[in-house]
Amino acid sequence: MIRPSLEDAYAACEAITRREARNFYYGIRLLPPQKRSALCAVYALARRIDDIGDEEGPFAEKATALAAVRAALHGAADPADPVMVAVTDAAAHYPIPMGAFEELVDGVTADVRMDADPDVTTGFYATFDDMAGYCRSVAGSVGRLCLGIFGSMEHPDSPGYADALGIALQQTNILRDVREDLQNGRVYLPREELEQFQAELVLDEHGVLVDKSGGLAELIRFSAERARDWYAEGLRLVPLLDRRSAACTLAMAGIYRRLLEEIAADPASVYHQRRSLSGWQKAGVAAKALAGMGRIA
């Protein structure tokens, strides 16, 4: 294959982002063109890594695919790969912490190992700290990748805020997807908290979560309250960003935070469906972010 032009490489990444980033793209499109293209490149590679973990196939096959990504990050990329062409160019223009992609690979590797756990319904992660470590790998890493493109005022805590915001978003994902993850043989909720709330993860014959004692609903509300603290910490990044980068961050975080509040208000709503905001709701959050109205932590 012929090496794609930079224009074609970035166009391919933007097409992936528009198609796959159902929530993030509402924020990404608020960026100026050059930053938008760079962030689409980052998203496209992150999406590729994530998809390796979610696709069907044996552990060895997925491990090989993840190893190929690591090799590409160290200079062994296919020169005809538009995603790597775009990411390499973006990294030449922005201080993107490329090591964060390898952290993402580590997190997806943990997902793949979970698939092989015969007793995962008891909880793959023993404690919240264990789960937070996973969240840091798969989502905090993405927050820091975004920060490399956004840029920020000189502040020693900027990477930590970006990390916290990614962890907050991932906690929201875990609560939203608890049913779907269980159907796929994965449990992210900490084992000690499942035991503390006497929450059983059981699907009925229709694939609906059964919560006879109400313990799962209590755990979801408890987890949502904790996630709010992570959002508050992560959103301390916003005043350190330029207006468009701040708007992007507020839009992405705002969509997930609103989703978190809807789940907290009605935990049972995730027992039979994958909750999401409507397109109009997402657009409204993005519009408020661009207008600077979403800066409340």
Rank of each mutant, 00 (worst) to 15 (best):
65 A>S: 04
67 A>H: 08
35 K>M: 01
234 G>S: 03
115 D>P: 01
48 R>H: 12
254 G>T: 06
68 A>Y: 11
223 S>C: 08
108 V>W: 13
54 D>I: 11
96 I>T: 00
164 A>R: 14
213 S>P: 04
62 K>M: 04
282 K>I: 09
264 A>Y: 11
116 A>N: 09
35 K>P: 07
255 I>T: 07
148 G>I: 09
268 A>K: 15
202 V>G: 03
70 R>E: 12
260 L>K: 12
17 T>D: 04
121 T>M: 12
55 E>D: 12
238 V>Q: 13
188 Y>E: 01
174 I>R: 12
214 G>H: 11
23 N>H: 07
114 M>L: 15
233 E>S: 05
31 L>A: 06
218 E>T: 03
92 A>Q: 13
140 G>V: 01
98 M>A: 05
288 K>T: 04
154 E>K: 14
218 E>P: 02
151 G>S: 07
173 N>D: 03
240 L>Y: 02
68 A>C: 11
164 A>F: 07
227 A>C: 14
11 A>K: 06
215 G>T: 09
135 C>Y: 11
230 W>P: 00
265 A>R: 15
121 T>E: 14
282 K>D: 00
215 G>E: 06
196 Q>C: 04
89 D>G: 00
211 D>Q: 07
64 T>C: 06
130 D>M: 09
49 I>N: 05
6 L>C: 02
169 L>H: 03
64 T>F: 11
275 R>M: 15
105 V>R: 06
31 L>I: 08
215 G>H: 05
183 Q>W: 11
291 A>L: 14
207 G>H: 08
34 Q>N: 05
57 G>M: 08
187 V>S: 08
221 R>T: 09
135 C>M: 12
293 M>W: 15
192 E>Y: 08
161 Y>P: 02
225 E>T: 13
91 A>C: 00
124 F>W: 15
69 V>I: 15
75 G>Q: 00
200 E>C: 10
96 I>H: 10
109 T>I: 02
14 E>W: 02
185 G>W: 07
280 W>D: 05
49 I>C: 02
183 Q>N: 08
20 E>W: 06
202 V>M: 13
114 M>V: 09
205 E>F: 02
93 H>A: 11
115 D>K: 15
127 T>L: 10
24 F>H: 06
110 A>M: 15
32 P>T: 07
91 A>Y: 02
61 E>I: 03
118 P>C: 06
264 A>S: 12
59 F>K: 14
